[in-house]
Design a binder for these strands. Structure first.
Ligand SMILES: [Zn+2]
Ligand SMILES: [Zn+2]
Length: 754
DNA sequence: AGCACGCCGACT
DNA sequence: GTCGGCGTGCTC
């Protein structure tokens, strides 16, 4: 019998390797990439796995037999398995975490008898979730606790956490450190009960859309022709000012690629994946469009998979995760709003979508198109000096001039006696817009009401008990909330430290701004758009629709309002405080500020009327602000790239973040230092001085604790990413490193280092 | 993930 | 002494 190498579908670092199994004759011909059911462990419990290799014999002597193949399960191709190994090695994740990018992971496997043999199939339309609650035997938690021994800490933890309302296993695991074994004991004792519920998937409903073909202007035509002149797989950067008609160019690229018999992936930031863009693409192409985002259920994912595999879907529109769509004849990958940080994953695997796309080019003859009004300096640098072709759209489609940007020095407002967050110029602009019946967008990058609540008498600040960070006051729920762990608590009316009642609220967020606006402009109809007000499903699109239809005068909100919407009647845009992004301690702060101002400014004056933008700041002379005022992308790029070069920041280096988290403050520092030492020795042995100099000393994170877990980290600013990656992979296999108690996070070029 | 093995504190 | 929770190691 032949032998199969099988990875088991278990996310666990001890299981990040293959296991050998015999292939019984009735399962031949076995193929790499198939999903199988195998007996595992002492109990031979049936578990699913992925075949990654086939060989004639095994070193290991006591092999078990594969039980069966899971029918209809998406089979991974050779290129997909190669991508998984690459993801694992490049981003330091488990192999199965990489696999789960490509295929749905929560299999619901059913068994049936056929010709006297067990065969397996998926019942993924139904996804069962286990819920737990207190049995209802007693009234108070204390009574439950009295039933178990004092040293049963895990069980006590579970009981204290549970209520009479069912809680899913997943939620319970986030709050406690329980296992199914602990829960089963409590069930046996009759203290808690278990129930199962089925997640029902709701299929995506098609609507009728129309999006007529727009004729291309000169620059668009040039961008189109240039793209077409490349036969070999190439990469392009489409740099087009806001309103220059990038979408139309993308659609032409897609049309052309489909004509050549190839398929396309069109990626947008998750937040931009709205009915507007879906409507445009569905309205243009008569083909089926696959829509992929991270909120799809496993059943929906399988549906999309099959539709792509049998080629009834040739165009996939989606957020970051859609880069893993199983296109075998990929011809084009578009990354729209290329500069957005959502193209970098913050969960394992912590991949960068552009890098994944470049890797895909090794397996597919496909073009990559990056598009943005404010390209990331790394991409622009590549376009100037690397293998990326620069395509420019320097004019707006209808030659509408860019709105004029005014910079307001808020220090001068203070001197003039204006203590509000709205400058006199912005105030007059809003009043005038209200009078003329034109719309206003206000951007403030802080949600909540007040971001810092403290006692004026003794300096006591309301900090989260789980995190070392100040909590934000939320007026809608009248509670303090932590933006890192979600913890909520009551608002102090008297200081718990000194009993003073001089509690002060500072740091205005969107909620406070909304209240102030309602006070100043009682006649105005105001909409607020931030993660808090957009919780409800569909709220985001409803708000957009309301504003689009002119049913509100002012739209205020966080990042969300900067996205590429086409509101024709918006003639005034206000940036309440540009400094809030500028002062983030991160090398990308200037870039981010420039991008935000440019993006939000692009919302003004999209119709026939001229627009105006007012940027309020305490640093009116910062180059990110003055150059965005001048719409001088190139000027900004030049300044920023010389700063990056001087400081050896990306694109002149890669930053490897190596972080540890643990509930024990001492343990986490010990583990981090130990890892650092081990790495230091290994680098010294294998590489030498040059790489050693790229390692920075470990320290506690700027936010020392998040969600009860203390954090330590160090970074490596390197020009030898490949060498470091292989050393880090080698280190992860060492026993002493495997045994570290703290959770290890390795992030290559992370979005932030908090 | 689950399960066995073995250590050690609580309780008879 | 025994019972049982909980950390550790292993699963082809
Ligand atoms: Zn006080
Ligand atoms: Zn918190």
């Amino acid at each position: 019998m032949r032998v199969a190498e099988i990875y088991i579908n278990q996310i666990n670092k001890n299981m990040d390797r293959s296991f050998d199994y015999y292939i019984p004759d009735f399962l031949e011909p076995m193929e790499i990439g198939l999903r199988v059911v195998i007996p595992f462990g002492v109990k031979n419990s049936k578990i699913d796995g992925l075949v990654v290799g086939i060989k004639e014999s095994s070193e290991y002597k006591r092999l078990k037999n594969i039980e069966g193949i899971i029918e209809d399960y998406p089979k991974l191709n050779d290129w997909q398995i190669k991508m998984c190994y690459w993801l694992q090695k490049s981003y330091h994740c488990l192999f199965m975490e990489a696999v789960n990018c490509f295929v749905p992971s929560n299999l619901h496997i059913k068994k049936k008898k056929e010709n006297g043999r067990n065969t397996y199939y998926m019942a993924n339309a139904l996804h069962e979730v286990k819920y737990y609650k207190l049995s209802g035997k007693y009234f108070k938690t204390e009574d439950y606790l009295a039933q178990i021994k004092s040293n049963a800490t895990k069980q006590r933890e579970i009981l204290s956490c549970l209520e009479e309302i069912p809680v899913s296993f997943k939620e319970l695991k986030e709050k406690t450190t329980c296992t199914t074994a602990n829960l089963n004991i409590l069930i046996k004792k009759g203290l808690i009960t278990e129930s199962k519920e089925i997640n029902i998937r709701n299929p995506y409903k098609d609507r009728e859309y129309q999006y007529p073909v727009n004729t291309l202007n000169r620059h668009q035509q040039e961008a189109f022709d240039s793209f077409n002149s490349y036969e070999k797989p190439s990469t392009f950067l489409l740099h087009g000012v806001t309103g220059s008609g990038k979408t139309e160019v993308y659609l032409r690229y897609i049309e052309e690629t489909i004509k050549r018999g190839k398929s396309c992936i069109y990626l947008v930031p998750e937040i931009s994946l709205t009915s507007q863009i879906i409507g445009r693409i569905m309205g243009r192409f008569k083909e089926n469009i696959g829509i992929i985002h991270s909120h799809l259920s496993d059943g929906e994912k399988i549906d999309q998979w099959n539709a792509i595999k049998n080629k009834s879907v040739r165009i996939v529109l989606g957020a970051r995760s859609a880069i893993f769509a199983p296109m075998d004849d990929l011809g084009l990958i578009i990354l729209d709003e290329e500069h957005e940080n959502t193209f970098k994953s913050n969960n394992r695997p912590r991949y960068n979508t552009y890098e994944v796309a470049k890797k895909l080019q090794e397996f597919h003859e496909c073009h990559i198109v990056l598009g943005s009004a404010t390209p990331s300096v790394s991409s622009y640098y590549e376009a100037l000096y690397g293998h990326v072709n620069l395509l420019e759209l320097p004019e707006r489609v209808k030659s509408i001039p860019m709105p004029e940007i005014h910079i307001i020095d808020m220090k001068e407002e203070l001197y003039a006696g204006n203590k509000t967050v709205i400058s006199r110029k912005l105030h007059n602009g809003i009043l005038q817009n209200l009078k003329r019946g034109e719309q206003t967008i206000l951007f403030l990058n802080k949600r909540g009401y007040s971001t810092f609540v403290f006692c004026r008498n003794c300096g006591y600040a309301v900090n989260c008990p789980n995190c070392e960070i100040s909590m934000t006051y939320h007026h809608n729920i009248k509670q303090m909330a932590c933006h890192y762990c979600g913890h909520k608590e009551h608002v102090p009316t008297i200081c718990p430290k000194c009993n003073s009642d001089k509690i002060k609220y500072t740091g205005s967020g969107t909620q406070k701004l909304e209240m102030q606006l309602r006070k100043y402009y009682p006649q105005a109809r105001i909409l607020r758009m931030d993660t808090d007000s957009m919780q409800r499903k569909g709220a985001y699109e409803e708000t957009i629709d309301l504003f689009q239809q002119g049913k509100a005068d002012i739209l205020l909100g966080t990042q969300m309002v900067t996205k590429g919407f086409d509101f024709k009647n918006v003639t005034l845009v206000g940036v309440i405080l540009a400094d809030s992004t500028l002062n983030i301690p991160d090398y990308k702060a200037s870039e981010r500020t420039f991008q935000l101002i440019t993006q939000v400014a692009g919302r003004a004056g999209r119709g026939d009327k001229l627009g105006e933008v007012i940027v309020q700041t305490y640093e009116p002379n910062h180059y990110a602000i003055t150059l965005s005022q001048a719409y001088d992308y190139k000027g900004f790029y030049d300044q920023e790239i010389s700063y990056r070069k001087m400081m050896k920041y990306p694109p002149f280096s890669d930053i490897i973040y190596i972080g540890f988290t643990n509930e024990d403050e001492v343990q986490v520092s010990r583990d981090c230092l130990k890892y650092y030492d081990k790495l230091y020795k290994l680098v010294k042995e294998e590489e030498g001085e040059e790489l050693l100099r790229e390692m920075y000393q470990p320290t506690a994170s700027p936010i020392k604790k998040i969600n009860k877990k203390y954090r330590w980290y160090f970074i490596i600013k390197t020009n030898h990413l490949l060498q470091y990656n292989s050393i880090l992979n080698k280190l992860s296999e060492e026993k002493e490193i495997m045994e570290l108690h703290s959770t290890l996070i390795i992030d290559i070029n992370p979005n932030n280092i908090l």
